[in-house]
Design a protein around this nucleic acid. Structure first.
Lengths: 339, 339
DNA sequence: AATGTTTATGCAAACCTTTGCATAAAAACA
DNA sequence: TGTTTTTATGCAAAGGTTTGCATAAACATT
């Protein structure tokens, strides 16, 4: 038998006063006598009264909850971003509804619908790799629901966005490889439906071109994901080339770790015979042998900034006059896997 | 200027019918004429009507949302558990509010209060390492709010619980080390406020005792956390002993990775001179060199089962007659870091 | 004593939706 | 035509909270 939770009316009935008085007493309204206030507060405590935010939210048309949709939660990248988001939101008393799209556009849409019905105050979304059509996101802005896109771009959608300057990060990495004498530099790209993967690929090509290193198509392979497993096959393909690469720039640390594994298995010495550079600075990367050179991304800051912009938008009543597009800067970290 | 979202009353006014009729039309109530129903549904679509679940939840006293509190989200362990939780909940149309306690009891309490006010239907909690007093959890059960504890125990609290049999996992690991000839087996324990850490320590001692290997206090060191960084100092301490260990069993893979790093830096060969075994089977562990032997835990299943039990409890109106305590089985995975 | 002022409280509406009950209109039947 | 049945719709309450306005009681002022 489920006993109902204590409400403001329960307290009122017990004390023979009206619910309004109870409400005011609990909210420190000045026009309440000390006697009444004390009595109310005490009874509330003994009855373990907890305000029903559903009712209040309905009244205020505000839930103090924001919806977060990420492709996956298990990657160190996104979990670290979420960390940053929580650290900004928590002191503000704002809750997070989190869900993963598993890189599926259908799931993304369905989560979106669900969050919208719950009336979250705003959205923080990093779109799935399948998401090419932004109608579902457009509906949010059409309905004046604040939305901030982070990390992965939705080109053409006019909302606040926060990115890492992937181009710069990748450019630094490749340029550095060239400068340390590598000439046959390969790139294991990510799924090219992602803006991030495209930017890194472009930077790779541009950096090579700038330094007059020919761009060869056979040195560019695409991985279908971001785990070490996804790095195995592409690396095997690269090593099997007539003229195998003397450096590999991988889309992220996960794939780079897979690459190192294959390279070492093949009896090649890193970095003497082949350099490896990743992206993300996964917390484990510096403990590999050799430790993995990589491009650090300010993930925590990315989360914080995205959340801060979203909250500002929410509190300014979603006035869309000044859309912000912010870029954070990544940093090359040279370790043992490169010369 | 924020335009209000479409409500059922807007549709009713527009169509000159009552809100009840609109509600019934949208819910396929039989006593509505086809003509009215069609008109309603069409208008709802063009106005992009989305039901306000706040109102409905208030009426139903049910939010279809559950609250999840974990110590941290960035560890592969907990993010994988959350993965399992979502995969069970999602098809049921249940949402997740997720928050991290950051191993702080105060934060845990405050998140709890917040989730309770939001009226989540139930809780899935893995307590922080600081949590020794369970009053705040007791309040939940006192108020008939379903709660499932997972992974870390709250001894004395009578609620549903789902664990991994840590003892068995650790015992397997240590016994295996003994059987491969190690005699000076060290243990880097986790924070001993955690039931999991205590169980593993006990298994370590018991396994040694069973095989008549003396338990030496200097071989037991405590780490204050679970990252590679937390493994550095304890390992240095172990290696500095007059008679350094020939095997290290670490509280988890993170710490084991830190240990391997220190050991290799010291010029010792793994596993010839010293074996290392971790716990958790972090996705990266098999790509280290040598690859890390570890104890795999069914994290995904842990999440699924916990969520399943919670949903059952919620749907059975929290009838507490049959508290369940479930245990899942871990498995030793032998790789290159041990003989 | 009469009036004005302050203090403490209550009433009722609003937020949005569902649903039991009542009822009007239409259809079917005698 | 009058009565019963069916069909389609509306009314009002409920869920818990806040808040503008009204008001009763207590106090202060002349």
């Amino acid at each position: 038998m489920k006993k109902a939770r204590t409400t403001i009316t329960d307290i009122a009935r017990e004390l023979n006063i009206s619910p309004s008085t109870v409400s005011r007493a609990l909210n420190n309204h000045p026009a309440i006598s000390k006697k009444t206030r004390d009595a109310v507060i005490e009874l509330a405590k003994t009855l373990n009264y907890q305000p029903n935010l559903l009712a209040l939210n309905l009244l205020r048309k505000r839930t103090n909850t924001i919806g977060i949709i990420v492709p996956e939660i298990t990657s160190s990248f996104f979990s670290s971003v979420i960390n940053g988001i929580q650290d900004l939101l928590s002191p503000l008393g704002v809750n997070m509804m989190i869900s993963q799209s598993n890189e599926s556009m259908e799931e993304e849409k369905s989560i979106l619908r669900s969050f919208a019905s719950i009336r979250v105050d705003g959205f923080l979304i990093s779109p799935s790799s399948e998401t090419k059509n932004f109608d579902h996101l457009k509906i949010l802005t059409d309905n004046n629901i604040p939305l901030v896109i982070f990390d992965r771009d939705c080109e053409g959608l006019e909302v606040d966005k926060v990115f890492v300057d992937e181009y710069s990060g990748a450019f630094q990495a490749v340029e550095y490889l060239v400068k340390t004498g590598c000439r046959r530099i390969a790139h294991i790209a990510g799924p090219l439906s992602l803006s991030t993967a495209r930017h890194r690929l472009k930077a790779y090509k541009d950096a090579l071109a700038l330094h007059h290193v020919p761009v060869k198509e056979e040195y560019i392979v695409e991985s279908s994901g971001f785990t070490p497993e996804h790095g195995i096959k592409p690396t095997q393909k690269l090593l099997a080339l007539p003229s195998p690469p003397d450096a590999v720039f991988a889309i992220n640390d996960g794939v780079a770790i897979g690459a190192m594994y294959v390279i070492k298995k093949a009896g090649l010495v890193i970095p003497d015979e082949i350099s490896v550079v990743g992206f993300d600075d996964d917390p484990h990367s510096c403990y590999f042998s050799p430790s993995l050179s990589t491009v650090w991304q300010p993930t925590y800051e990315l989360g914080m900034l995205s959340a801060r912009i979203l909250m500002k938008r929410i509190n300014s009543n979603n006035d869309l006059s000044d859309i912000r597009v912010e870029e954070l800067y990544p940093e090359l970290i040279v370790r043992g896997s490169s010369k």
